[in-house]
Amino acid sequence: MGFKLLSKLLVYLTASIMAIASPLAFSVDSSGEYPTVSEIPVGEVRLYQIADGVWSHIATQSFDGAVYPSNGLIVRDGDELLLIDTAWGAKNTAALLAEIEKQIGLPVTRAVSTHFHDDRVGGVDVLRAAGVATYASPSTRRLAEVEGNEIPTHSLEGLSSSGDAVRFGPVELFYPGAAHSTDNLIVYVPSASVLYGGCAIYELSRTSAGNVADADLAEWPTSIERIQQHYPEAQFVIPGHGLPGGLDLLKHTTNVVKAHTNRSVVE
């Protein structure tokens, strides 16, 4: 069995187990497998329904001669939608809004960016022009300005110390501490036991640490421990890039980060 097929099978099995364990909360999309990078042309966006009122959005972007996937989250909030992270750029984010209108038909009224990198804030200006209120932590807003990236308009308070959590509509926002970046936030959907790890969490097929220019490698494993301790009931975990899975993604990420750190020390 090929690795790609095995990865998709694991996603399907995880979703099936969740649907059985929580039949009222989960209505997993039966329309197909989780979209992969090879299936999404740059400039297009796919939506994948995880649970009743919960979707991931998947886009792709060219970077350094390669094409990478990027995940975000959409959560229903009454007759409105909360968006977590842009679709990595203005063109993708405009396509995301169009796809949401086509498939869901509810307005996106608020959006949260989970850290300051372009795959999370690139497209904020498109959201703002569409009347979406954009939010991020003060740290993310400051770092985005320093980096020359787009800056969300509103500040999220109460997320300055490791372990801080605040309720934001249908989700809980959690600051686990520094990891992929010093400002990275985690998003949890309690009604569906869905954990969105953003770039602080890796997919299972990833074996290298990737972009760690703004990471705190020493603190990252401790931050992941905080996530595990705060959300032990999480059933569906979405990484910032690639295929979702279960809580095993947290341990896998820790292993990859520690291996990278150990290699760096040896070198």
Score class of each variant (00 low, 15 high):
M1K: 05
K4D: 11
L5F: 15
L6P: 08
L6Y: 14
L6A: 14
V11Y: 08
Y12P: 06
Y12L: 09
T14Y: 14
L24Q: 13
L24R: 11
S27T: 12
D29E: 10
S31P: 11
G32M: 08
G32P: 11
E33D: 10
V37E: 15
S38M: 12
E39A: 13
E39D: 12
I40W: 08
V45A: 08
Y48H: 14
I50P: 04
D52C: 06
S56V: 15
Q61M: 10
S62D: 15
S62V: 05
G72A: 01
G72V: 02
D79S: 10
L83P: 00
I84P: 00
D85S: 00
A90F: 06
K91H: 11
K91F: 07
T93Q: 00
A94E: 15
A95L: 11
L96A: 01
L97I: 06
A98I: 08
E101R: 13
E101F: 06
V108C: 00
V108H: 01
H115Q: 02
F116R: 03
H117D: 00
D118Y: 07
R120W: 01
R120E: 01
V121P: 05
G123R: 04
L127M: 02
A129C: 00
A130Q: 14
G131H: 07
V132D: 02
V132W: 01
V132T: 06
T134L: 01
T134K: 00
T134D: 02
P138V: 09
T140F: 04
R142P: 03
G148I: 02
T153H: 13
T153P: 06
E157A: 12
G158A: 08
L159S: 02
S161A: 13
G163L: 04
D164M: 11
V166G: 04
V166Y: 08
V166D: 04
V166L: 12
G169S: 05
V171D: 01
V171I: 09
E172T: 04
L173V: 11
P176E: 01
A178K: 13
A179E: 04
H180I: 01
I186A: 08
V189P: 00
P190T: 08
S191I: 09
A192P: 06
C199G: 03
C199S: 03
Y202P: 05
S208Q: 11
A213M: 12
A215I: 05
L217C: 04
A218I: 11
W220Y: 09
W220K: 00
P221N: 08
P221C: 06
T222D: 13
S223Y: 03
S223D: 03
I224H: 03
R226D: 04
Q229M: 11
Y231D: 02
P232R: 10
P232F: 09
E233S: 13
F236R: 10
G240H: 07
G245S: 06
G245P: 03
L247A: 15
L250K: 00
T254E: 13
A259Q: 13
T261S: 13
N262L: 11
V265Q: 13
V266T: 13
